[in-house]
Design a protein around this nucleic acid. Structure first.
Lengths: 340, 340
DNA sequence: CTGAAAGCGCTAACAA
DNA sequence: TTGTTAGCGCTTTCAG
């Protein structure tokens, strides 16, 4: 295999200096059209493509963005990552993807790696908003940062792409209470992160506003482990004072509720009304389809990419906080509360 | 913000030459323990971490692996990617991830980018096994390649991680025919790739072996577009000579079958037996749960990473072809064929 | 508009 | 065991 052609080879072929070739490659205007053409021909003839490592070394820019997610097999994570990657690739950026498995220690390691690799920017879901080390590590990156669906200590300078979780949750609670449900349950994943905490607050506020007895509402946290969803749902549903409606966050928990309901012989929606959050895959496969709070993950990813590109292009502007909508999509899984 | 410390700063601090620092960083044994300690202290004191771009330039190794998938929102793709990333990260490799949206042109572009970025290796699902350009582009990469679940012209030197699709498909057809089904249908995605073609062949062979009339069996191809699954399933099921059992590949098609069956008022399993392939998410959310052909995607990803690491470590060995198992997991969605 | 020179941070080869 | 020298491919002065 022949050695890859370098800028030198092109320069020789086109009988110009390497500087001129560099100018052509980088689209500098200060090149005579005729020279430019000659250089371009030479590049094509030799199959030249610039060595990004060498360029990085000079410019200390890698045209690479790090993307850190807790779990890539989680549909929302994957969808956001893919949409962002597409947009970034259009602008010549490549994406270094890593997942933390919801573990702070892994996340810290990944951030270190991204720093060592001198990525030009980082888009991330942190897995724990409270961890000061994590916040410090993020702040220390020294490159543009876009934080997805999380809050972070104000010491961290970053753009934020958030979702309106509270609004949709309020709608959902009002809808269920309108159907006569007085005992609701909310199954959540991990209270250390914003969307979960925000949903919880909105749930409690809306329940109170609807005049539901706080003692009759339950909020259950089921940490992100592969198992655990079904047992939690079983405990919740196998109780005389059980809720008549359940809201479950994420595919895993929604599936847990469906399986537990089936195991206990509870029919949906006659015996139990169910609402899913961010769980379209499971919701659409169930019978009946499950009413769901959904977001447009493609939009989230593209927005994150856009903010990142803005920063990378050196546009000024203070830190951005964009809040994208969630919507409640009704689907036969909720009916008036059964008498009890 | 202070300039990042370089090997030179460390050398000065530790009163050695840059070469010695380099040796310590790279774990060369030819360094006196005491010197090593001094250097390590200096590194820690300055917060030194090596500049990978500079290293890449010298070694023309990036410690980066490209990972190319058709669609990251496809659970199997994401699960394999995540497992591979984890294993590669353990060995200090970062993963550049890109998706092609099932389009050959995008895939070619990504391969170009990966080449320009001088990744040390590429793991990929090609989206079209027949495309000679694609095969040529892959062969031209000039780095170790691991191909997932695809065949490629033998001109491409690569390792292959395959799955045994035929075995499980044969089992499934025999199982359905044992239940008395004489009219089967198979819904597939894209015949340009190996798993699909292999399943088709196995389906037809097993049907013939079971004495089913070839004219009574249907194989439907529904290309990977977001919509299209439901209409295809509706057409298939809304026909007097419709199948009594359907095998659907992937979450999208399985969901299409479930929705179409519901729309037509066909009960599963009484009116229609259903088997899914690689669609655990949908299968487990349905009522009853759907019998499924499944694979261990984590294992596939780890295996791919292992093969890649082997190559990257310069181990000899000819091209590998590993075939990992699929298994049929029974779940109440198949019952004896209804009389007709 | 073009080129010569210098150097980014690192490591291979050789020398001591 | 340690250091000197050279140069990877590119871009950024600064001169012409």
């Amino acid at each position: 295999m022949r050695r890859r052609p370098t800028i030198k080879d092109v320069a020789r072929e086109a009988r110009v200096s390497t500087v001129t070739v560099s100018r052509v490659v980088n689209g500098s205007p200060r090149v005579e059209p005729q020279t430019r053409t000659r250089v371009e021909q030479a590049m094509r003839a030799l199959g030249y493509s610039p060595n990004l490592a060498a360029r990085s070394m000079r410019t200390s820019l890698t045209r690479t963005v790090g993307f850190l997610v807790p779990d890539l097999t989680n549909y929302p994570n994957a969808a956001v990552a893919q949409a962002a990657e597409r947009r970034l690739a259009e602008q010549g950026y490549a994406v270094l993807l890593a997942s933390s498995d919801h573990r702070v220690d892994r996340e810290l390691r990944v951030l270190e790696v991204l720093r060592a690799r001198q990525v030009d920017g980082v888009v991330l879901y942190v897995c724990d908003e409270q961890s000061p080390e994590l916040a410090a590590a993020v702040a220390d990156l020294g490159v543009p940062i876009v934080v997805l669906d999380r809050e972070l200590s104000t010491a961290v300078e970053a753009d934020f792409v958030l979702s309106d979780h509270a609004g949709a949750m309020g709608e959902t609670v009002r809808y269920l209470s309108l159907l006569g449900h007085r005992h609701l349950a909310l199954l959540l994943t991990d209270l250390r992160i914003r969307p979960v905490a925000e949903r919880r607050r909105a749930f409690e506020a809306a329940a109170a506003a609807a005049g539901l007895d706080p003692a009759g509402q339950s909020v259950l946290q089921v940490p992100p482990a592969p198992a655990g969803a079904v047992p939690a749902a079983l405990t919740l549903l196998d109780d005389p004072s059980r809720p008549t409606a359940v809201i479950a966050e994420g595919s895993r928990l929604l599936r847990g509720v469906l399986l537990a309901a089936r195991a206990l012989g509870r029919r949906i929606p006659e015996d139990l009304s169910v609402v899913g959050i961010d769980a379209e895959d499971v919701a659409s496969a169930a019978t009946p389809e499950i009413t769901c709070i959904l977001r447009d993950f493609g939009e989230i990813g593209r927005t994150a990419a856009e903010l990142m590109l803005h920063r990378l292009a050196g546009r000024p502007a203070g830190p951005q906080r964009l809040v994208l909508p969630s919507r409640v999509v009704l689907n036969g899984s909720c009916v008036p509360s059964p008498a009890r």
